[in-house]
Amino acid sequence: MTLVKFNPEKKNSSLLPGFNDIFESVLGDTFFNDRRLSTVPAVNISESNEEYHIELAAPGLRKEDFKVSVERDMLSISTEQRTENNTEGKIYNRREYSYSAFTRSFTLPESANVEQIQAAYTDGVLKLNIPKKEEAKAIARQIEIQ
């Protein structure tokens, strides 16, 4: 008979407590942790009276690496980047290829003017300005109280 240590203080204990410990030790390895990290860049979305602003953090890329497209009311930003190093004559203990790709899609509101979208990539940030249609712009005026 095999005895398995049981730690009742663990929050994720189940009928087989040792079973979880095995998976935590294997999946907690740095090799697997690196693979589980999301490769989707962070995005900030803001709005002004005149337009919508999207800022996508993607350092290390070139503006030629991006593909920005609009189909109906869906804005898609994607990229695919491969880095191949010539490493003849080297012996590796561990080698990780540098290959990254992502696609981010956003549903545009009806008030967005898709014909006049502007994009610029500077300092590792892709900035998109999406103007609003004239009828959607907030009109501010002072109302006189009588």
Rank of each mutant, 00 (worst) to 15 (best):
K67V: 13
K132Q: 00
S13T: 14
A119I: 06
E96S: 11
S76H: 04
R62S: 04
I22F: 04
V114W: 03
K63T: 10
I45S: 10
S48N: 13
L15D: 13
F6D: 14
P17I: 09
S14N: 14
N20H: 11
F106W: 09
K132M: 00
E47L: 10
E71K: 11
L128W: 01
N7Y: 11
A136R: 00
N33M: 01
E24Y: 03
N12Y: 13
L128D: 01
K11C: 10
E64G: 00
L3V: 14
K5N: 14
E115W: 05
L16E: 15
T79A: 10
E9A: 12
V40L: 09
L75W: 03
T79R: 00
G124S: 07
T87A: 15
L128Y: 00
G60R: 02
S100F: 08
G89F: 08
V125Q: 02
L126H: 02
K5S: 14
A119Y: 06
V114G: 03
S14F: 07
G18Y: 12
K5E: 15
A120Q: 15
V114C: 08
G60N: 06
N113S: 11
I22V: 13
V43D: 05
V68Y: 04
E64C: 00
H53C: 02
E51A: 08
D65A: 03
S111W: 09
S46M: 08
D29T: 09
T122S: 10
A42P: 04
L61P: 03
F32T: 05
L126N: 02
N113Y: 06
F102V: 01
F66H: 02
I77A: 02
R94A: 11
E47S: 14
P8H: 09
E115C: 05
N12L: 10
R62V: 03
S46D: 14
G124L: 04
L128Q: 01
G89L: 08
S25A: 06
N33Q: 08
V68C: 09
P17D: 13
T2W: 07
E50R: 00
E135C: 00
D73F: 05
S105N: 11
T122P: 03
E51Q: 09
S78E: 08
F106Y: 15
S76F: 02
S105W: 01
S13C: 11
G28T: 05
E71A: 11
N85K: 11
T87D: 15
K67C: 05
F6V: 14
E47T: 13
T30N: 07
L56A: 01
